[in-house]
Design a binder for these strands. Sequence first.
RNA 1: GGCCCGUUCGUCUAUCGGUUAGGACACCAGGUUUUCAACCUGGGAAGAGGGGUUCGACUCCCCUACGGGCUGCCA
Length: 521
Amino acid sequence: MPRERKTGAQGRSRPRAATSASSGPVSTRTLCPRPALPNEPGVSLNAYGFRKVNAAMSDIVTRFAPSPTGYLHIGGARTALFNWLFARGRGGRFLLRIEDTDRDRSTPEATTAILKGLTWLGLDWDGEVVSQFDRRERHAEVAREMLARGHAYKCFSTQDEIEAFREAARAGGRSTLFQSPWRDADPADHPDAPFVIRLKAPRAGETVIEDAVQGKVTFGNDQLDDMVCLRSDGTPTYMLAVVVDDHDMGVTHVIRGDDHLNNAARQTQVYLAMDWAVPVWAHIPLIHGPDGKKLSKRHGAVGLEEYQAMGYPAAGMRNYLTRLGWAHGDAEFFSDAQARDWFDLEGIGRAPARLDFKKLENLCGQHIAAAPDAALLPEIEAFLEASGQPALSQPQKDGLSRALYCLKDRAKTFPELLEKAHFVLGNRPFEPDEKAAQALDPVSRGILRELTPQMQNASWSRDKLEEIVASVAGAHGLGLGKIAGPLRAALAGRTISPSVFDMMLVIGREETLARLKDAAV
RNA sequence: GGCCCGUUCGUCUAUCGGUUAGGACACCAGGUUUUCAACCUGGGAAGAGGGGUUCGACUCCCCUACGGGCUGCCA
C-alpha cells in the first residue's frame, strides 16, 4: 500500500465554512513603512505593494510566515520559494505574514531584512504584509468563541504549579503533559485571578493529519495536551494565531518546515473546534549544513543576504534551492517558468538535504551564462552595493557591457566575473600583479614590441589579430601559448582574463597599442 | 523519557514490486586549449543492519542502529 500522498490541486473540496459571523477581514495595515526601493534591478516595484491579480486565478492560497527575529534564513527562503512556486504555478495567491507576536524578539529591522531578502530572491507576494500582532484582538475573539462553544476553558493554574506538576511527573516517570485541574471545573468555582484559555482537547482517540509530503501521520490524543491559546495577559499564542490567521486569510495549503509536523496535530484540533476547513499540510524537511547537522552559524552563510553578498545570482539561487529537496525527473538546470510549471508537492523529498556549494556554483555559472547582458549589468551593480563595494562608474559600466559577452561564459559568481573583467574596469597604466609581472620578462617584452607596428594598420578583426600574433610567435619559433601569456599580462595586468583576442576587440586598437607600449618599456 | 519524521553513489536526486539501480554536481584519468573557465572521452562511486511478505524487493511490514523534530503562557 503506497504511502498516501495527495496534492491539494486535485480533489479535496474545501468548503469555506464561514462559521463565525465575525470572521473579520485580514488586517491590511502594512507592517513597516515601505522601504525605499533599494537599487535592486530586476525587482519589480510592486514587490513591496499590491500585486495585480491575473485573470487565471485558482483557489489556491499559500503563505510564508516568518518570525522577524533576525535575518532571512536560507531554509526559510526555500520554504518561501516552495510556497511561491506552488501558488504562482497554479494561478493562486502567495501571501506574506510576519509572526511578530513575540514582542521581545521581534524587530522592524528583521522584518525589513526579510522583505529585502525575498525581494532579492525574486519572490513577490500578493496583497500587503500582514502583521500577526495587529490581529491579536481577532485571535482573542476566537479564543472566546471556543470558550463559548465548550471547546476551551479557563485555567487558573500558575506557572509555578505547572512546573511543580511537571517535575513530579518527571520524577515519577509519568508523562509531563500538563493536565489542568480546571478543565471540568464549575465556573462558579473560578477564582478572581489571572487565567489562560486552554483548548479542551479530546483525551481519547487520535488526531490524524494527511500530509502531502509526509503521508498520513497519526497522533494519539493522549500525547497532546490542552495547549494554551490565550495567555494570561490576553495575548494569543502562536498555536492559536496561526490557525486563525491562516483561516481568515483563506490559506489552502500550508507548506512549511517539518519542525511543525507535530504542531499540525494540535492546530488541527483548533480547526475542528471552530468547524473550519483544515488546510492541506505539506511539511518539508529542513536544510542541513554540508556535514549533515542542522544548519547553524558555524556552517558559514545561513542568511540569504550573505548569499547575495557572495555574488550568487538570484536565478541560480532559485534554481538550486528549488532543486534542493525537490525533483522533477532528471531536470537540473531550469528556468523560472519551467520551475513554476513543474513544481508540485509530490516531488518533495522526505529527508533533509545538505547544502552543496559546488553545485550551487555550477548552477549559478549556467544562469550567468544564460542571462541576457541587459539583465546582468544591473544585477552586478546590486551585488556591488550589497557587498559594500564601490559602485561602477559610467565608463566602467560601458566597458563591462561591451565585455559581458566574453565574460559571462566563464564565471560562476559575480566576484569571479568581475575579477576577469579587470581589463575593462581598470585604467592605464595597468600595474601587473605578481604573476603577470613574471610573464613580462625582457624577452617577452621584446616580442610585444614587434606586435605593435603590425597592429597599427591591421583591420581590427579577430581573424586578422590571430593571424598577426601567430605569425610573430612563429617567427620566434614559439607557439601561441608562449606569447599569449605576456600579451594577457600587458592587456589585463592579470593572468586570468578572457581570451586575449576578445580583450583586444573590446578595448579597441588605440587602447590595445597603448597598453602594449606601457608593458613593453 | 514519551511521541513523530527520516535513512539510494562524497553531495542533490530518479526509481512509485521485475532496471546492467539512471542523471547531475564533485572527484580521478585522458583529450582539446592563449590563462581561468568551458568543452570532449572514459572511470571509480549507492539502496544503514537484521528479520519478514512475495515467484520476485531499493520499493510493502516489523525490529535495531543512526540522524532530526516536538514535548513552553517561543515561533
